[in-house]
Simulated scan of single mutants.
Amino acid sequence: MARSLGSNLSSLLRAWVVGVVSGLTFLAPAAGAQPKNVVVFAAASLKDALDDVNRAWERDTGKPATIVYAASNLLAKQIDAGAPADLFVSADLDWMIYAVAKKLIRAESRVDLLGNSLVLIAPKDTRVETTTHSIATMLGSGHLAMGNVDAVPAGKYGRAALEHLGEWDAVKGRIVQAESVRAALLLVSRGEAPLGIVYRSDAASDPSVTVVAAFPPDSHPPIVYPVALTADSKHPDAAAFLAFLRSPRAKPLFEARGFIVLNQPAARS
């Protein structure tokens, strides 16, 4: 049985996510008023790339977006609970499908914006033996850091890859499940876990980790980041920000952070 993250990091991250979203709820404008900035709820793995895009948007418009980063499952449930957001960017299709089923987003605005790949990482100055193909052997007496395998997209992709490669049974009792893929990255970066499974874009964002191996693309479902306007958004700049995410201006910023730009209409579910 994979164990959940037992350190203070888990509770701190949960408090941060709830605090940020609750703060937005508390600061929501009165009925009929508009918030100053577009509010975007985005998967944690997008932080560096979307911060770059937001800076470009601000330079062009003079109006920065307010971006809340967390695991896609937490964000989708917060939107469902009434948290104010104008756009939702998920790290997998499942949580966007959840939002569609709950009528939380405008289905006609959905776009498959980005793709990514999955990698195995270790601390930069690792002594992990990388000549073996067995992750269990590479772990030694340590644990494998991953996003929650039942909820966090990177965790679900990681579990699918481990099962496909026949590694799951050997490591499932030695997994430290984190609240988000960035929390899993942090555990490896700090040396608290000898190995972790994250997106390639996450690995590229942290010089304290190194990529040990890449998971074959066919070992897990395709990694797709869909984006959509929320059903309740009335911000006049929301559609323009979505268009900016799809623009030639944003494309090289996403690619520089390790993402694959898909930018295509989503298959309807």
Rank of each mutant, 00 (worst) to 15 (best):
D80W: 07
L113D: 05
Y98D: 12
R159F: 09
N148L: 10
I223C: 04
H133F: 11
G23A: 04
P84H: 11
W16A: 10
G258Q: 03
E129D: 15
V111P: 07
D169H: 12
E255A: 11
P194C: 12
A71M: 11
Y199R: 08
S269K: 14
A231I: 08
P216M: 00
T132E: 08
V181A: 15
G147M: 02
W57M: 03
D86M: 10
G155C: 06
R3N: 14
I67K: 00
S7D: 15
L74D: 14
A243Y: 10
V111I: 14
A85W: 00
L229Y: 06
S180E: 04
A267S: 14
L9G: 06
V211G: 10
E108G: 07
K47M: 09
I175Q: 03
K156F: 03
V18M: 09
S208N: 15
V100T: 03
R14I: 09
L12I: 11
A101Q: 15
L24H: 13
P265T: 01
A65S: 13
D86W: 08
S11H: 10
T25S: 03
A184D: 11
L253R: 00
A91F: 06
M138R: 14
A145N: 08
S109I: 03
G173E: 12
R182G: 04
D92W: 09
V198Y: 05
Y199W: 10
L93D: 12
L12V: 12
F259E: 08
N116Y: 10
H235D: 00
V198S: 05
G62M: 07
T230L: 11
E179W: 03
L9A: 14
T132Q: 04
G23Q: 05
A2M: 08
A160C: 12
I105T: 01
R55T: 15
D94Q: 14
P29M: 14
G147S: 05
S134F: 08
W57P: 01
V171C: 06
K77S: 06
A85L: 02
Y98M: 10
D150A: 15
P222W: 00
A154F: 10
A28I: 05
T132Y: 02
T137S: 11
F215M: 01
T131I: 04
A161I: 06
T61H: 07
Q264Y: 04
W95R: 06
L186A: 12
N148P: 03
S7Y: 01
E167Y: 08
T230H: 01
S180H: 11
S141V: 13
K63F: 02
Y98R: 07
A250W: 04
D48R: 13
P265Y: 04
A250F: 01
Y199Q: 14
E167P: 07
L185Q: 09
A31S: 15
N54S: 00
W168M: 09
L185S: 02
D206M: 01
N54I: 02
W95L: 07
L195R: 00
T210G: 11
L93Q: 10
L120R: 00
V68K: 00
G140R: 13
E255D: 00
G19W: 02
V261A: 04
F88V: 09
I67C: 01
L229W: 04
L27P: 03
A28T: 12
A70F: 06
M96V: 01
A238Q: 08
A160D: 15
L162W: 09
K102F: 06
S134A: 12
R246T: 04
N263A: 14
V176Q: 03
